[in-house]
Design a protein around this nucleic acid. Structure first.
Length: 919
RNA sequence: GGGCGAAUAGCUCAGUUGGUUAGAGCGCCUGUCUUACACACAGGAUGUCGGGGGUUCGAGUCCCUCUUCGCCCACCA
């Protein structure tokens, strides 16, 4: 036997050392590298990583997101799947361009000073030099991604996919160029999609303006607007055709204040008679709804705000902007125009007005609706397919309530503006030939390859200036990273479609829905069968962690202070399905000490095991003679099986059982990460360490065959625990597993087999369960009576025959765990003693001469009996209720009767006890 | 304006198809450096399951309603 002094493990776990040791070894041995060929006879399990922005640095949200993915991938890898977790980064058009533009601004320059090509080169260089840092940071938290397949949305391969998708959709009639009002960010200088223009509730003002009739200044119409500056571009005032107040005015002409433009009063049912005055000014070039009205009535569409948000006569607006307003910023212009209107007597009133204003999701600038030419994707046909796969069960979303949100969005989907007026991104693969008059964009050249000369006339061509929305490359991610559009790609054949997509709800529309659409359209199959939307990391005030609030937690700080496993443990243990994770940025210890403490517990179990079990070979539990197992052995093996079953039930199923679609019964199941963590924790801590390990100390100290049995069972149980925990805490489990006596050489727990239940529940296991109850009763008596922790007490178990027989072999273990000299008897000893009824038919008597306050003990027993009798009365009432007995299921009634018998027996025992001390 | 979700111990949350003594972790209280672990061990206290009404033999669980909080969507001029 190895002495404790020779313990192969140091006293404390060195997380940093374990991380530094194991991660490189895993990658050297290609543990994370998926093999397309092997996927032929192993179930593939594929997760594509939501690509972080190439300039991003790891924050706690990434930490959570990637930990979840890593847990799932590590689980399936152990379960024997050919697991692929495909990592990469997103070139993040607007965001990355903004970073470099800020650098330029510091030099006092703009991208226009630099010029397009040099600017793009500069961004590319910047990305090359500093980008992708986050991928290294992901390694520090243990992410088991297949780095040999690392992808980038702007790589030549993925750029090819982008072009293919654009051209294919154009051929399918789903890509078109449109002239309409879109969301424009004057700061970024580009259009945005509907999703990129986020609503913010704003306390604004509603300005009521009076427009006079051109032919009769005594008559007028009052209109209300939140953006008075747009009045310069008004082309009509619309009233509801059924609004009796305005019948006489329809068709008359109004005189616009400030610029004197003459505009008609028109009738359009868009106008809500109940809002404001029931008349609405129409500004087709600067409001999406007004644009529709303008089209219906063939109105002119003057543009008076330019790309930079400056008010001037941009297009079809001659004479509309007074000289004193030209050149003003749109918000300065608003202030000035209100002053001018007031001076002109045209301002009726200003009211406070709560409304939602769209802001740029990248720079938070107020978005300006603006008329321009843009490329769009017609979404309805794509959305129909994305709805179809959800309805068929080919796709599910967890938590399930998000499915309704997904359906709602897809059913009301609008066309997607995919062109951006920035420079960093995939240039739109469209060329125009000025020579043959293809300049209006009606019949441009759309090509998979670069076009250098006009195919019709051989003249010079110029490429469309715009680039594509970043999300137009990300929506192809599950295919493009596997080699699409090359349908012969080994990866695409082996790993498409994938399995689970893990992300936060914020990008359900931006990204997830669109990936489903592109997968269905181009591959005929949804790219995954499960969307798992996890919660958000928040602080103790439930605020989202963010840089601007300064309430963030740097995951790398946590790794340094507590270790990567502690970070992972905390996140997984706190991750109920769809529930936010609360962490305290001001008290990291409170948040992460539980993870560290858990690792320490594992470490100490291993220290005990290695010093007492030793490193000599142990027998496999399979070959042990079943009769040689003690009740404790049978019990812990049973608890291990239960833990495995609990973990499996919490995590799985990994995929639809029929391989095609989720059944209703399966649909909401699995991915309960916190339940999985709790099941594993409970086993290793509350069962293995607290009970089994304590119970076998005497057996390990002795020599002989029973010691070998205990060694074998302990080693097996701890091995199982480590395997169950590997996906959550990969570093410490690897570090410890490598040292177990039964671990094969040159193996990693990271690719060891996931455990399976093997043993059946036995009466012996139940006997240990009873022994535990007795130990707890004795300890309770000791505590309540102030017995010195080190002192031994006498304890008599008064048991009926059946129980006594099962208990006889357990007396030693009960005694050592409770520090009691335990005897079995059929009569209670007399004298002052503490009493407890463990179960019906089993009394515990602990004589504590001189330590027992008889009156107090009697009061305690009496109180216990009183409570029991109350419950008995209630139960008797229930059982004498004819309706209950006749209507409730027989099994329920039977169980209630059994319970009543048990309680009555217990009550009788308590009564006897009271009588025994003459109370 | 439409839709969805939540409300259970001081805090964060579990509570499966209604089945009757409502659970966990953290925190709190008492005791202990018991030969792996004080980052630990043993024991303990704490809930009119948001309010009201209903269905049922039986409701934390189902229905209605009210209150509070959160999320999503929307052409809130």
């Amino acid at each position: 036997m190895t002495s404790p002094d020779q313990n192969p493990l140091p006293q404390n776990y060195d997380a940093a050392a374990a991380q530094a040791a194991w991660y490189p070894r895993w990658t050297e041995h290609r543990v994370f590298t998926a093999d397309a060929a092997r996927a032929a006879d192993h179930e593939p399990f594929v997760i594509v990583m939501p690509p972080p922005n190439v300039t991003a640095v790891l924050h706690v949200g990434h930490g959570l997101n990637n930990t979840v993915q890593d847990v799932l991938v590590r689980w399936r890898r152990m379960a024997g799947d050919e697991a692929l977790w495909l990592p990469g980064t997103d070139h993040a058009g607007i965001a990355t361009q903004n970073v470099v533009e800020k650098q330029l601004a510091a030099e006092g320059r703009t991208r226009f000073d630099v010029g397009r090509d040099p600017f793009v080169t500069r961004v590319a260089t910047f990305v090359e030099q500093t980008g992708g840092e986050i991928l290294h940071q992901l390694k520090a938290i243990g992410s088991s991604a297949d780095w040999t397949r690392t992808a980038y949305t702007f790589s030549p391969e993925l750029s090819r996919a982008v072009r293919e998708a654009f051209v294919r959709l154009h051929e399918d009639g789903l890509v078109y160029k449109g002239h309409r009002v879109i969301h424009w960010c004057p700061r970024c200088g580009t259009s945005l999609s509907d999703e990129e223009a986020e609503f913010t509730e704003t306390a604004g003002k509603l300005y009521h303006l009076r427009y006079l009739l051109a032919d009769d200044p005594s008559q007028s119409i009052v209109v209300a607007t939140t953006r008075p500056e747009t009045m310069l571009a008004d082309v009509a005032v619309a009233v509801n055709p059924d609004d009796e107040r305005y019948q006489a005015l329809i068709g008359t002409t109004l005189l616009l204040p400030l610029n004197g433009a003459r505009i008609p009063v028109i009738a359009d049912s868009y106008t809500d008679p109940a809002f404001g005055s029931g008349a609405v000014k129409i500004t087709p070039a600067h409001d999406a709804n007004d644009f529709d009205v303008g089209k219906r009535h063939a109105l002119p569409m003057p543009v008076i705000i330019d790309a930079d948000g400056i008010v001037r006569e941009v297009e079809l607006a001659a004479g509309r902007v007074p000289a004193e307003l030209a050149g003003l910023d749109r918000f300065e212009a608003r202030t000035r125009i209100v002053q001018l209107l007031e001076a002109a007597g045209a301002l009726v009133k200003i009211e406070p007005h709560q409304h939602s204003v769209r802001h740029c999701y990248r720079c938070d600038t107020v978005v300006e609706p603006r008329l321009s030419d843009q490329w769009f994707v017609r979404m309805q046909p794509l959305a129909a397919k994305a709805l179809g796969v959800l309805r068929s069960g080919e796709l599910r979303i967890l938590p399930e309530r998000w499915e309704a949100v997904y359906v709602n969005w897809l059913e009301g989907i609008r066309d997607w503006n995919i062109s951006r007026q920035i420079w960093w991104g995939h240039r739109i693969p469209v060329w125009y030939c000025d020579a043959c008059g293809k300049t209006d964009g009606a019949t441009p050249i759309v090509s998979r390859t670069d076009v250098t000369a006009c195919p019709t006339c051989g003249g010079t061509v110029r490429q469309d200036d715009d680039v594509l929305d970043t999300w137009f490359s990300s929506w192809l991610w599950p295919m493009s990273t596997l080699g699409w559009p090359d349908m012969d790609s080994a990866d695409l054949k082996a790993f498409y479609p994938g399995d689970v997509l893990v992300t936060a709800p914020e990008i359900l529309f931006f990204w997830v829905s669109r990936m489903v659409m592109s997968g269905c359209w181009f591959m005929g199959k949804a790219p995954f069968h499960t969307v798992y939307l996890h919660g958000t990391v928040r602080d103790m005030q439930h605020r989202k962690m963010s840089k601007s609030l300064g309430n963030g937690i740097d995951p790398l700080d946590v790794v340094r202070l507590y270790g990567a496993d502690s970070l992972r443990w905390t996140m997984v243990a706190g991750l109920g399905l769809g529930v936010d994770v609360m962490l305290d940025p001001n008290d990291l210890d409170k948040s992460f000490a539980p993870g560290r403490n858990f690792c320490t517990k594992l470490w100490n179990i291993a220290r005990f095991l290695l010093s007492r079990v030793g490193t000599e070979p142990v027998q496999l539990v399979d070959v042990l003679d079943a009769d040689s197992l003690t009740a404790a052995d049978a019990w812990i093996l049973d608890r291990l099986d239960q833990a495995i079953a609990d973990c499996d039930a919490a995590l799985g199923p990994a995929r639809p059982a029929n391989g095609e679609a989720w059944t209703d019964a399966e649909r909401g199941r699995g991915l309960r990460l916190s339940e999985y963590a709790e099941a594993a924790r409970r086993f290793v801590w509350n069962e293995l360490a607290d009970w089994y390990l304590e119970s076998i100390k005497p057996r390990l100290a002795a020599d002989g065959p029973d010691r070998e049995v205990a060694r074998a069972v302990l080693a097996h149980a701890f091995d199982g625990a480590l395997r169950l925990l590997q996906p959550i805490v990969p570093f410490i489990t690897e570090e410890l597993w490598q040292q177990l006596p039964q671990t094969p050489r040159n193996a990693f727990i990271a690719q060891a087999a996931w455990p399976r239940p093997r043993f059946t529940r036995t009466p012996a296991g139940d006997a240990f369960e009873l022994a535990r109850s007795i130990v707890q009763s004795i300890r309770q008596v000791r505590n309540e009576n102030g017995v010195q922790p080190g002192a031994w007490v006498d304890a008599t178990l008064v048991a009926c025959n059946d129980i006594a027989a099962a208990l006889a072999p357990q007396l030693t273990v009960i005694g050592s765990l409770a520090r009691a000299r335990v005897t079995l008897s059929d009569v209670a000893p007399s004298g002052a003693a503490a009493h407890a009824v463990v179960v019906a038919g089993l009394d515990l008597v602990v004589p504590l001469a001189g330590m027992i306050d008889l009156a107090k003990e009697a009061a305690r027993v009496r109180a216990e009996q009183a409570q029991l009798d109350t419950q008995i009365t209630a139960l008797e009432g229930r059982l004498s209720n004819e309706k209950f007995v006749s209507k409730a299921p027989a099994a329920v009634v039977e169980a209630e009767r059994a319970k009543l018998a048990e309680w009555r027996a217990k009550s009788d025992q308590l009564a006897a006890k009271l009588q025994s001390f003459g109370a």
